[in-house]
């Protein structure tokens, strides 16, 4: 049922007659309209990737990041409203550093995810605030190995083998489901992620750049941006694959 015009959809503290909190759904819309981001869990780590539209040629290349370091062993890729995303990243960094100073060891991914989810959930509880218009793909590598989580505006969080958010999430998920995620290495996943993002971008043809990070054995289990040359290689492979498939058509 649509909530538009009923008056039940104006506050995060209002239920509609059939039990929905529309403001939370609307915040999710902001994420759904955003540029596409994806995360892949590989056998040796996690790869995060996001497309960014280049709205002006005056912009400095690779500025306004969507992937951030949270701690050495954790990183977040934010979809949706970038300013909201940064606040979530700030909170994650605080949680990580508080945990470290209290327990003397890095925050486990599971705990970080839980705390972020609680934090985002808080903004669904008061009329005086709005839910965050952002979702975070969280990549961590701790004692239990690599893990990928998705934290949504509602405060819901799940652990994934692979997932996507943003405009083309469905198309990306279809691609991910075809892949054998458990057998992939991060190096291979970087290429796959580039291919997927180029493919879902085929139709609109707008200029975009890809931001990618990984946390794996290659990166010393430290979350970092995928090295420029590795990313360039992956993008070249993606473009080559696109042309190949064009020839077949």
């Amino acid at each position: 049922m649509s909530g538009i015009g009923t008056g039940y959809d104006l506050s995060a503290t209002t239920y509609s007659p059939d039990g929905k909190v529309f403001q939370t759904d609307y915040a999710q819309k902001a994420v759904d309209n955003s540029s596409t981001a994806l995360g892949i869990k590989c056998k040796d780590g996690i790869v995060l990737a996001v497309e960014k539209l280049v709205v002006s040629k005056l912009l400095v290349e690779r500025s306004s990041r969507r992937i951030h370091n949270v701690d050495r062993h954790a990183g977040i890729c934010v979809a949706g409203l970038l300013p909201d995303g940064r606040m979530v990243v700030n909170r994650a960094a605080e949680e990580a550093s508080n945990y470290k100073s209290f327990y003397g060891e890095p925050i486990p991914g599971r705990v970080l995810c839980e705390r972020l989810a609680s934090y985002m959930h808080l903004f669904n509880l008061y009329w005086s605030m709005r839910p965050y218009g952002t979702a975070g793909l969280l990549a961590t590598y701790d004692e239990d190995g690599p893990a990928l989580y998705l934290v949504e505006p509602s405060g819901v969080a799940h652990k994934y083998h692979g997932t996507a958010v943003g405009k083309a999430r469905q198309a990306v998920k279809n691609e991910l489901e075809k892949m054998k995620l458990g057998q992939l290495t991060c190096r291979e996943a970087v290429v796959e992620a580039a291919k997927i993002l180029h493919k879902v971008h085929e139709e609109d043809g707008k200029p975009f750049e890809i931001e990618m990070s990984w946390i794996c054995d290659d990166s010393g289990r430290v979350h970092q941006r995928v090295p420029a040359e590795v990313l360039a290689e992956a993008e070249a492979a993606a473009k080559a694959a696109m042309e190949e498939s064009d020839m077949e058509d």
Partner: peptide
């Protein structure tokens, strides 16, 4: 550093929190 000056969380979450 913590305990030296100022509140521990520099980014206040909200008046509620």
């Amino acid at each position: 550093g913590p305990g030296v000056a100022g509140p521990e969380l520099a980014v206040a979450t909200s008046a509620v929190l």
